Every structure is written in structure tokens, then in C-alpha cells.
Deep mutational scan, measured.
Amino acid sequence: RSRTAFTAQQLEALEKTFQKTHYPDVVMRERLAMCTNLPEARVQVWFKNRRAKFRK
């Protein structure tokens, strides 16, 4: 699988949600996936990586 390049709009939506909660539930992730045209699995991995970045 190749690396996913996120658009500015996708990142904005993801970051906005991350500010609200670092652990979105499956419903919220699926809604984000639909809004951003990304698979739910990519949204889940983005949050996992973003939490790791946040802890540093």
C-alpha cells in the first residue's frame, strides 16, 4: 500500500475532530471517512499517528 497524501480540506476536518476528541468512536470515524472520502481504516490510523505525535 502506498502512502496516503491528505488534502488540506481532509487535514482540516481531521485536526478539527482531534481538537474535540483524541479517541473518536466508530460512528464519528465513519462520518469523517464519508466527509473526507477516505476509508475508515485510514482515518483510524491517522488518529493513532496523531496521538503519537501529540505525546512527543
Rank of each mutant, 00 (worst) to 15 (best):
E30T: 07
T36I: 13
R3V: 14
E12G: 04
P39E: 11
T21E: 08
W46M: 04
R29Y: 13
R50F: 04
Q19D: 10
R51K: 03
K53A: 13
L14R: 01
E12H: 03
A52M: 10
Q9P: 07
L11P: 00
R42F: 11
F18L: 04
D25S: 05
E40I: 09
A8R: 05
T21H: 05
F6G: 04
N49T: 12
R3A: 14
W46H: 10
N49M: 10
R31Y: 11
F18D: 00
F6D: 00
R51Q: 07
Q19Y: 08
N49W: 11
P24L: 03
T17G: 11
V26A: 14
E12Y: 05
F54C: 06
A8D: 09
N49S: 11
V45R: 11
A52R: 09
V27S: 09
T21M: 02
K48Y: 10
S2N: 14
L38S: 03
F18K: 00
L11Q: 10
E30D: 10
T7Q: 04
T17I: 10
C35V: 15
R3H: 14
V45Q: 14
T36G: 00
V43D: 07
A52K: 08
L14E: 01
K16M: 12
W46Q: 08
R3E: 15
N37P: 01
K53Y: 15
T17E: 08
R1A: 11
A5F: 12
S2F: 12
K16E: 13
T7V: 01
A33H: 03
K20N: 13
K53L: 15
L38A: 02
L38H: 00
A41L: 07
T7P: 05
Q10H: 04
W46D: 06
Q19N: 09
R51M: 01
F54T: 06
R51S: 01
T21W: 03
L38K: 01
A41R: 08
V45L: 12
L32D: 00
E40H: 08
K48H: 09
A33F: 00
M34L: 13
R42N: 03
V43N: 05
T4A: 07
L14V: 07
C35E: 15
D25F: 01
R3T: 15
L38W: 03
F47K: 00
P39G: 07
K48Q: 13
F6C: 06
A33D: 06
R29L: 15
H22N: 06
D25R: 04
L32Q: 00
Q44A: 14
N37H: 09
Q9A: 09
R50Q: 14
Q10E: 01
L38I: 12
D25T: 03
N49P: 00
F6E: 06
A5S: 13
C35A: 14
P39R: 06
S2E: 15
F6W: 05
W46Y: 07
K20S: 09
A5H: 07
Q19W: 06
C35Y: 10
M28S: 09
A41G: 13
R50H: 02
E15P: 00
R31I: 04
Q9K: 11
R55S: 13
P39N: 10
T36Y: 13
R51W: 01
L11S: 12
E15R: 01
R29I: 15
F18W: 10
H22F: 01
R31E: 15
L38G: 01
T7L: 00
R3P: 12
E30R: 05
K48C: 08
R1Y: 10
R3Q: 15
E40L: 07
V27C: 07
P24Y: 04
N37Q: 12
M34Q: 13
V43R: 05
M28A: 10
V43A: 07
A52Y: 10
E40N: 01
C35H: 14
A52F: 07
P24G: 01
T17K: 06
F6I: 08
Q9M: 13
A5T: 13
H22E: 05
R51N: 04
Y23N: 07
K16N: 11
M34A: 14
E12V: 01
F6V: 09
F47V: 01
V43I: 13
S2T: 13
R29H: 04
A5P: 15
E30L: 06
R29N: 02
A33M: 06
Y23K: 02
V26E: 13
V43M: 02
R1M: 15
M28C: 12
Y23S: 02
Q19P: 09
A33E: 00
F54E: 15
Y23G: 08
E30Y: 03
M34C: 09
A41H: 11
A13W: 08
F18A: 01
T4D: 15
E30W: 11
K48E: 15
E12W: 02
A13I: 12
Q10W: 00
Y23F: 07
A41C: 11
Q10R: 02
L38P: 03
T7Y: 01
K48D: 03
T21K: 03
L38T: 05
P39Q: 02
M34G: 09
P39F: 04
Q19H: 07
Q44T: 13
L14N: 03
A8G: 09
F18V: 00
A33N: 01
Y23M: 01
L32G: 04
L14D: 01
R3C: 13
T7I: 02
A52D: 09
Y23T: 03
D25Y: 10
V43Y: 12
T36N: 05
A33R: 01
T36C: 09
Y23V: 01
E30I: 00
A13P: 05
K20Q: 13
E15G: 05
F47A: 03
M34I: 12
A8E: 10
R31G: 04
T4R: 11
K53Q: 11
M28L: 11
W46K: 02
A8W: 05
T4Q: 14
Q44S: 09
R31C: 08
A41S: 12
M34Y: 04
A8Y: 12
R3F: 13
N37W: 01
Q19S: 11
L11E: 15
L14C: 02
T21I: 03
R42Y: 08
V26P: 13
L32P: 01
W46L: 02
T21R: 02
L14Y: 01
A13C: 15
R1P: 09
T21Y: 02
L14P: 04
K53V: 12
D25W: 03
F54A: 13
T21P: 06
Q44M: 09
E15C: 04
R50S: 07
R29D: 02
E15Y: 10
D25E: 09
C35W: 12
D25H: 01
F18C: 08
E30K: 02
T17D: 03
T4I: 06
A8H: 06
L32H: 01
H22A: 09
T36H: 14
M28W: 04
F6T: 02
N37F: 09
K16D: 10
R42A: 15
T7G: 03
M28E: 15
N37C: 04
K48W: 00
N37E: 09
N37I: 02
M28D: 11
R1C: 13
L11R: 08
F54P: 13
A5G: 14
R50G: 08
C35Q: 14
R3D: 15
N37G: 15
A13L: 13
Q10K: 01
T36V: 10
S2V: 10
A5C: 13
V45E: 05
D25N: 07
R42G: 06
T7E: 08
F47W: 01
V45F: 06
Q19E: 14
K16R: 11
F47C: 01
A52C: 04
R42W: 14
E40D: 04
S2R: 09
R29K: 04
W46P: 03
F18Q: 02
L11N: 08
W46C: 07
R31T: 10
